[in-house]
């Protein structure tokens, strides 16, 4: 029950999901956090109480805290309690909008890693002009975007296998193109890890390898899955998000500046609205943490009701698709080949 807008946004998203049919049909929700605060929020919201259970956890790990220290000090924190409940089989998936580092650490401590990779990867999506797969997803998948800082070449290969499996299941893209993020398209350029990873990815039979791509090529959608180490991915995804937000801030400022610009923007507003919807992080829901035995979705800490609602939908979809098992299988066969 962390996040900038918790508990209100999280409780509102769950209340809304409890009323929904479709993807959420028949799903029960377990809210973990300060029970009194969650009860007060639910009291004022339309919801189906048959599908919601509350579990009291008195503390939350704050955004400014060091994840490892906080987790060790506070076993009563909501993220720890939530992980324990999922581990005990009380729930099938974990969705968190709280401290991302603490959520990654708590999840990896509680849930086993699949497929012998030894590392989980946080996967984020980024909108591109190209659509892919049967689901016609207009998104590229980028991983790792911050589950860990560094990755060995074999781990980058594992990320490629996990990303491919995810794209096959979620985007229904039978042959996803995997690219390695680097500072050059040349296979011999980049850090030693990137050069070695290129070699591993290019000769792997289970991976449709596109080659290296540079940062500016991510938004062009050349690849369906972009592989990189966590530090690089985290920086890249934040730059991409920041650029989109800055563009709209500029448009908003221009709107109030001159009448002619206002008229121009009015004429373009339909198209701009579509672009805004596409680049709005709230529309994606959250980032799946791949490589664990349980489904884990991490939301942006700034997430509002809509983002958390979409994250819940993604979690349900991933549970129904038995994603952890599919990824375990992809890694088992893929890593033995590699």
């Amino acid at each position: 029950m962390g996040g900038d807008h918790a508990p209100a946004a999280v409780v509102a998203a769950v209340a809304e999901a409890s009323l929904r049919g479709g993807v959420g049909q028949g799903v029960n929700f377990l809210l973990v956090g300060d029970e009194i605060a969650m009860t007060e929020a639910l009291f004022e919201l339309d919801h189906n109480s048959e599908r919601i259970q509350l579990y009291h956890a008195p503390t939350v790990i704050g955004m400014g805290e060091r994840a490892q220290v906080a987790l060790e000090a506070r076993s009563d924190a909501s993220i720890v309690q939530a992980c324990a409940l999922v581990q005990a089989g009380e729930a099938d998936a974990l969705v968190s909008a709280g401290h991302p580092g603490a959520a990654v650490l708590a999840a990896t401590r509680h849930f086993g890693l699949v497929g012998g990779l030894g590392r989980a990867a946080l996967a984020s999506v980024y909108p591109t002009p190209r659509v892919r797969g049967e689901a016609e997803d207009p998104f590229s998948l980028i991983l790792d975007v911050g589950a860990s800082l560094r990755a060995r070449p074999e781990e980058l290969l594992g990320f490629g296998l996990m990303g491919s499996a995810y794209a096959r299941i979620v985007s229904r893209n039978e042959r996803p193109r995997v690219a390695l993020l680097s500072n050059s398209r040349e296979s011999t350029m980049g850090t030693p890890e990137v050069v070695q990873a290129h070699a591993l990815l290019s000769r792997h039979e289970a991976i449709h390898f596109y080659g290296n791509i540079e940062g500016h090529e991510i938004p062009r959608g050349l690849a369906d899955v972009v592989v990189c180490e966590g530090f690089v991915g985290d920086v890249a995804i934040k730059i991409l998000e920041g650029v989109s937000e800055a563009a709209f801030d500029l448009a908003r400022a221009a709107y109030h500046e001159r009448m002619a610009w206002r008229m121009g923007l009015k004429l373009l507003s339909g198209g701009l609205q579509k672009i805004k919807q596409l680049t709005d992080f709230e529309a994606y829901g959250g980032a799946p943490l791949l490589g664990l035995e349980k489904v884990v979705i991490l939301c942006h800490p700034r997430s509002g009701r809509r983002a958390v609602g979409n994250a819940l939908r993604l979690a349900i979809k991933n549970v129904r698709a038995e994603l952890p098992a599919a990824i375990a299988e992809a890694l088992d066969t893929g890593l033995s080949q590699g």
Binding site: N28, S49, E50, Q53
Partner: peptide
């Protein structure tokens, strides 16, 4: 077609309120 979970959730809801 009610399950124990739905009934237990209903019970908890009354306590919370």
């Amino acid at each position: 077609g009610y399950g124990v979970v739905e009934l237990a959730n209903s019970f908890q809801d009354l306590i919370r309120r």
